[in-house]
Design a protein around this nucleic acid. Sequence first.
RNA 1: GCCGGGGUGGCGGAAUUGGUAGACGCAGCGGAUUCAAAAUCCGCCGCUAGUGAUAGUGUGCGGGUUCGAGUCCCGCCCUCGGCACCA
Length: 888
Amino acid sequence: MSCGSVARPRFPDMESQYHHKTVESAAQTHWSEIDAYRSIENDPRFPKGKYYACSMLPYPSGKLHMGHVRNYTINDMLVRYKRMQGYNVLMPMGWDAFGLPAENAAMKAKVAPAAWTYKNIEVMKAQCQALGLAFDWSRELATCDPAYYKWNQWFFLKMLENGLAYRKTQIVNWDPIDQTVLANEQVIDGRGWRSGALVEKREIPGYYLNITKYAEELLDATLHKLPGWSERLRLIQENWIGKSEGVRFAFPHDIKDADGKLVQDGKMYVFTTRADTIMGVTFVAVAPEHPLAIRAGQLNPALAPKIDALKLGGTTEAELALKEKEGVATGLFVTHPLTGEKIEVWVGNYVLITYGDGAVMGVPGHDERDFAFAKKYSLPIKQVVALGTHAFSTDAWQEWYGNKGDGVAVNSGKYDGLKFKDCVDAVAADLAAKGLGEKKTTFRLRDWGISRQRYWGTPIPVIHCHDCGVVPVPEKDLPVVLPEHHIPDGSGSPLKHDAAFINCACPKCGKPARRETDTMDTFVDSAWYYMRYASANAETMVDARNDYWMPMDQYIGGIEHAVLHLLYARFWTKAMRDMGLLNFDEPFKRMTNHGMLLNHIFYTPGSHGAKNYVPPTDVKLTHDEKGHINGGTLDDGTPVLYGGIGKMGKSERNGVDPQDLIDKYGADTARLYVMFVGGPEDAAVWSDTAVEGAMRFLRRVWTYCADRSADIASAGAVDAATLTAEQKATRFELHSALKQSNFDYDRQQYNTVVSASMKMLNALEAVKPGACPALAREGASILLRTLAPVTPHITFKLWSDLGFEKTDGALLDTKWPQPDAAALIQDELKLVLQINGKTRGEIVVPSSADKAAIEAAAAASSEVAKFGEGRAPKKIIVVPGRLVNVVV
RNA sequence: GCCGGGGUGGCGGAAUUGGUAGACGCAGCGGAUUCAAAAUCCGCCGCUAGUGAUAGUGUGCGGGUUCGAGUCCCGCCCUCGGCACCA
C-alpha cells in the first residue's frame, strides 16, 4: 500500500468525540453478555497454561477507596496482558465479610451486621464492575456465607483430631463495665475505648493452632523457596519467626518456696546464644514475674514493691530502647554450673517473662545491656573474649565486645583459645555431661490463638457437655450456622443470650449441652479463601481444580499484611498439604505489595490544639516562594493550615472517592491515572490536575483514531520502502516505544507503560490524516493493544469501530504486538561525543560504520580540535550505538 | 537502638542496571484560535552568567574507583517502613 496524501472522509460509524459514559457502559454490557471473564480449567483457547492472579480480598466497609482501585487495576492489567499473550487467566474476587467493624457499625446504626455487610457488598461489587475489572464473578465468595465458613469449621475439627489445634487458657483484655473482651486496638491508655473502664487481664480458655510446629519449615522456605517475594518481605517474615540457636542450661540452687519445696526443682534455667561467654557471668537477672523474683518479694517484703515497679513501662521496642536498665538485688544466690561460684540473682526490667525461661545470665563484658546494668549497679565486669590487639576497658562499651565471629576465649580456663563455635560446643558438652543443659533452638513465633469472644465470626464447632466435657460437633452437623438477626449492643456477644443457638444435645451422650459461643479470628477466613476461588462451590473444602490453579502465580496486597495474613496462609497451606488435601508447599509464588496512596492534609485549628480536618477538594491552595504548598483558604476566605502529606483516610478527611472520579472522568481515566502516578510498589501522592492530564490523553487517543478512521479502516500493511524519511522516523519511534512498553509490562512497571503509550501517540500525531493510511493503521493497532490492559473500555470501542475486530479478532484475545526489528534499524546513528569523559557534542555516522570508522570520525570532529587543545587522541572508547569518548 | 527501603527540577516521576541526567506527565510562561472564556493546537521551561551563540554547574553531604558514576566502594546526614532489650 502506498502512502499518498489524498484526504479521506471520516469513517461513517465513528463518533468524533470521546464520551466516556456511553463508551464504558457499552463495553461493560458487551463483556457481561458474552461472560468475557469466566475462567475454565484447561481452556483450549489458551495454550500457554494457567495464570492465577489475585488481590487480597477486601473488607466490605461501605464503598471502594482509591487503594482498592490501585490494587485491582494492577492486577487487572496483569491478567489482561497475560490473556493476550495466550495464558488461561483467573482473577477472582470476594469479601472478607466477618469482623469487628460490622459490629461497631451495627451498634451505631442499629442494623444487624449481616444486613449491613450484604448491603456494602452489593455497593462495592457494583463499583468493581463500573471500573471494568476482569473478575470472574462466578467464583465470588463472602466469608460470612455458611457455605464458606462450613469449611473453616470442618478443617478446624481436622486440626483438632490431629493435635494441630488445642485448647488452653489465654490472657485477654477484659472490660469490666461492658463485660466484654477487647482487642488490643480497643484498649487506649489502659482503658476500654467505649466504657473508659480500667482494662483487666483475664485468663479464659481458648483454642490455639500449632503454627510453631512449622516454624522451621516456614523459615527455610522464607529463606530459600520464595524467589518471587521481595527481599524486604522475606526479611520481615524471617524476623517475625525469629529463630535463634543457643544453649539452654540451669544454674542450680537451693532456694525453697513457702511450702519448703525447691523453687522450680532447684534449677534456674536460662537460654543463651553466647554460651562461649559463660565464664564471664558475674550475675543473673530474672524477670519481675519469675518465681525467684516472687519468692524474693515474699522473703523480704520491702523488696516486693520495688520488684513490682520494674514491671512498669511499655513493652514496645521504641519505648524499651529509651528505658533505663534498672534492677533490684534479691539477696538470693544460685550456683555457676561450671565453676561452682555463688552468683547473685537480680531482678531486671529488661528481662521478659514471655521469652525463653524469663531469666538471663549476666555477662557484662560482652553484652551491651548487661554492661549498662553492671555499670549502674557497680557489678564486676570480666573480659572472656579477646579480639586481635583490641584493648579491653570497663570504662565504656565498645562495639567489638559483642563480636562473636572473630574473637577467641580468654580468662576462661580450659576454654581459652577456642573460637566462638568450638567454644559453644565445648561448653554445651560439659553442661550436658553434668545434666544441666543442652543445645536448643528457640523461635519468637508463638502459636496462633484463634478464639474470639465476638458475635460476627465463624462459630467454633464444639459443644460443652457436663458429663463428656468438650465434644467436637460431628461432621454431618456442619455447618454450625451463625444466627444473622442479632444487633450487638456492646455488652458482649449476643450469642451468650441466644437460647436457640446455645442449647443443644451432646453428640456423645445425648444429654442437654451448651454450644460454644466463641467465634474464630477472621485471619482464619483469609488463610485459605484463594483456594476456594479455585474450586468454587465444591462439595468438599477444595477439589482437583485447586491443583490446577494453585499455587497462585501473583498475589497483590498491602504491606500491612506482610506478617500475620501471609504467615497464616502459608501455615494453613502446609497443614492442608499434610492432611492430603493438596500437593504443593507454598501458596504464593510471587507477591507484590502495592504502595500507599497519599494526599495533602489540611485543617483549621480548634480549641485545645484540636485539628478540624478539611477535605483537600475544599481548599484553594497557597504556595510559598519556592512553589511548595503551605496552606490555603476555604471558599468563604477562612484560612486553613497545611498538615503535610499522609495516607488517605477517614480520620484526616483526605481520601478521594473513586465514585466521584468514575462519574466525572470515567473508569478508564481513573485507571490510567493510578497506573501513571508511580510504580506499583511506590507510595503515590494524589493530584487532581494530573487526573485531568490522564483524561486529556484519552481524548487525544480518540481524536487521533476518529480523524484517521477512514485511513485505518481501509489500509493494508506498511511497506517500508514507500515511507518518507519523516514517516520512517515516526515508525522508528513507534516501535522503540513498543519495545520499551513490552519490557516494562514484563517487569510490571506500569507507570512507564503508560508513558510509552504517550510517546507512541506523540509520534503518530505527526502522520496527518490521509498522509499514510498504512502507518496510521499500524500505529492505531499497536497503540490500542498496548493500552488495552490499562484502559479496556475506550480501546474496546475504538478497536471494534475501526474494524480491527474483523481482521484481528476481539481485543481481549488478540495477539500481543511485537516491535518490527526492521523498523528499529536507522540509516544513520547519532553518537554522543565525549572528550575526556565530558559531553561536547555529537557525531552522525552511518549505522553500518565499524569501530575504526567511528574512531576516525570522532578524531576528525571539530569538537576534538576545539576541546582537545591540540593534543593527539590517546585512547578512544566506543560504546556501540551510544557514544564515543576521546581521551587526549 | 537494630534491620530494610529511599533521597533526582516548582511537583509526580524516567534513565532496559556503569554510557547524552531530567523521558513521559502535571504546574508555569509565551503565542495561535475565539467577540470572550472553556476546550484545542504550537513553542519555551534544572540552576548561574550572558541579548545571544555559549560556558560553568548540577541526582542529600564529603571522599574514592573509572576514559566515564544518579548507578559501584568508604564515611556521614535526612526520611519512610519493620521490630524482638530475644539473652
